[in-house]
Design a protein around this nucleic acid. Structure first.
Lengths: 345, 345
DNA sequence: CATAGTTGTGCAATCGTTCGCATTGGAGAA
DNA sequence: TTCTCCAATGCGAACGATTGCACAACTATG
């Protein structure tokens, strides 16, 4: 018996249950049971030991594909992200991966931002028989979601909510977050507060806008200084800010629908020769990485993307492993991250 | 409680080749051929049409799992990233995904940054029978890579190179990039130039350091002001900068091994009441997102992460589809991105 | 000593696709 | 007519793991 593990294990063309079984002189089903921690106690200790040794020697590794075909479970989760290159989503992705790995699932990642839309992407994921889906792309009333539901595949929405409550969704309390932002600006003495909102076909866009309007009315301010950006990007933010400052030059503070929009807004402010925060205060939303080092360091609302990712993964796995769970809405509580892009009036 | 959910089309329990075949009155192999664009010409047009219609009606979708088991090809690529949350890698991931999607592959993403190391992660990917692997985590002499090679699974390294040239790797010309950085600083009149290097067990760490030393010698400057950070992060950069400035307070310029290290260095400079770039110029490496908006906007070397990602995906797919390709090293040509963290002496 | 359990394994049927190898029914050639 | 060839399909064995059921060999029970 020469089990010198130091040498690279023999080149195993393909070790299978069968090949281990033959070498051990037992049936392949016995090998399967011996190697499964949940069943190995049903096999005599001596056989388990022999099987383990042989499996080790051959470098046997259970073929997840074959197992998936037989059991109907792939232990694969599809994750659809609107923009993979966006640092905020990178944070979320990391958290999802981390949590899924703990539960023994792997993550199939797709970028839903392409021109063809998310439907073909989700269909591809379904063909791969993913056990569940995390959608960060969902629009407020999404045909993709309808497809997932009719295919009976467990799905959670993250950072998005849909109008009909058909699946669990994890999101920040957008309305509450905007209240925080408005209250902060009011406490600094601002009255002419405007809002660069996110796209109207996304829940965050509408909810944050609604939150803005509610909060403004609450303190008896005019909530009508709002422009919706066409997408979440710096360019779109800059364009929206251009319109906004053209129409309402008296604005002394701007609440942006997300950080990228805020950054675009600041660029436009600088471009006009104005200063943020001296002339105009700006507040973002999400607290994406690096915001503490931009100029000026951006005051923002932390939407806890990492936490949302972890919660989404956890909720999805729970939904998969418990046969049925009621759809619910899990909201994270936003916090104000005070930095230097907001100043007293 | 069995409420009849608003069933849109038919509830397809699971449409299979068999079920379509039965409904059409042909054999399942005929269905398979009719549905495969590469073989449908061998089947009479009339049958193809009937099969297509029935498949459509049942919502048939080829089971990729079963196909993988049979063919031994999963059309799945494993991608291992050292730090998913790092925006630079997010960029790269987006590019990889984009390119793989074009070639019809899906991407299984794992974070190799965990404490347990990358080996178990790669083993999991191998159990899933990935057709190939993109490793952005490889160290200079990586046991993980040895495992991949002995398992005969096509692998490419990205943003990393290994000492022995066993597989294709895609990376920036690190040495050349550092030359660019040093030349730039020299042209601004700096003489006391220091280097906050990346970890010594990573190719980028060593190569950039070597590039720094070479470039310094080239212009007859002392190349010995170097401190290696323990990892690529702002904190590590700050710690390294602390040591560096303690030992060589005369430094007027610092070249950092990557942008995060540069950012940490700048934090430390500010912390000491000094100014970047007035007292000390800093130059980063990689050109990660948002650097144009930090304070001061960071001069850096663009390592073209997106391009590397695309090249890696392309090379990997080529290596999978051609039976064998010689390992090669593909280097991207770095560019200096001039911003405001460097100033004349 | 017969009966009933218990324990450890073997057996074989799936799971859904793929693909080499038949097997048809005609059309064209000898 | 008889033989060959071809086009259009059918047939069935993989691929590798899982799992309910069967069964043999014991052990405990009455």
């Amino acid at each position: 018996m020469r089990t010198t593990t130091s040498q690279a294990p023999t080149v195993h063309r393909s070790a299978t249950l069968q090949s281990v079984a033959e070498a051990t002189g037992v049936h392949r089903s016995t090998v399967a049971r011996a190697l499964d921690p949940g069943q190995s106690h049903r096999i005599s200790a001596e056989v388990v030991e022999r099987v383990r040794a042989e499996a080790q020697r051959q470098g046997y590794r259970r073929d997840q594909i074959a197992a998936s075909l037989r059991t109907g479970k792939s232990r694969l989760i599809g994750v659809v992200i609107p923009d993979l290159a966006n640092p905020a989503f990178a944070t979320m992705l990391a958290a999802i991966e981390d949590r899924l790995a703990i539960d023994g699932y792997s993550m199939l990642v797709a970028d839903g931002g392409g021109s063809s839309g998310a439907l073909p992407i989700v269909e591809e994921l379904m063909a791969r028989r993913v056990d569940g889906l995390v959608l960060a792309t969902a629009t407020r009333d999404d045909p993709v979601l309808t497809a997932c539901i009719s295919a009976a595949i467990p799905t959670v929405l993250v950072n998005r909510r849909e109008d009909a409550l058909r699946v669990t969704s994890i999101a920040a309390n957008d309305v509450g977050g905007m209240c925080l932002a408005v209250e902060h600006l009011v406490s600094l003495g601002h009255c002419e507060i405007a809002h660069v909102a996110g796209p109207i076909d996304m829940s965050t866009g509408v909810l944050r806008r609604r939150g803005f309007e509610d909060a403004m009315r609450q303190v008896n301010l005019d909530p009508s200084f709002v422009i919706s950006a066409t997408e979440y990007s710096r360019d779109a933010g800059r364009i929206a800010a251009t319109q906004l400052l053209g129409r309402w030059p008296q604005a002394t503070a701007i609440v942006a629908g997300n950080d990228l929009l805020a950054l675009g807004t600041i660029q436009e402010i600088k471009h006009r020769g104005l200063s943020c925060p001296d002339d105009i205060s700006v507040i973002g939303h999400n607290d994406m990485p690096l915001l503490d080092m931009v100029a000026p360091p951006l005051t923002t609302i932390d939407a806890e993307f990492a936490r949302m990712g972890a919660l989404a993964a956890r909720a999805l796995v729970a939904g998969i492993e418990a046969a049925r769970t009621e759809p619910e809405v899990i909201l994270t509580t936003p916090r104000l991250i005070l930095r230097e892009s907001t100043a007293a009036r």
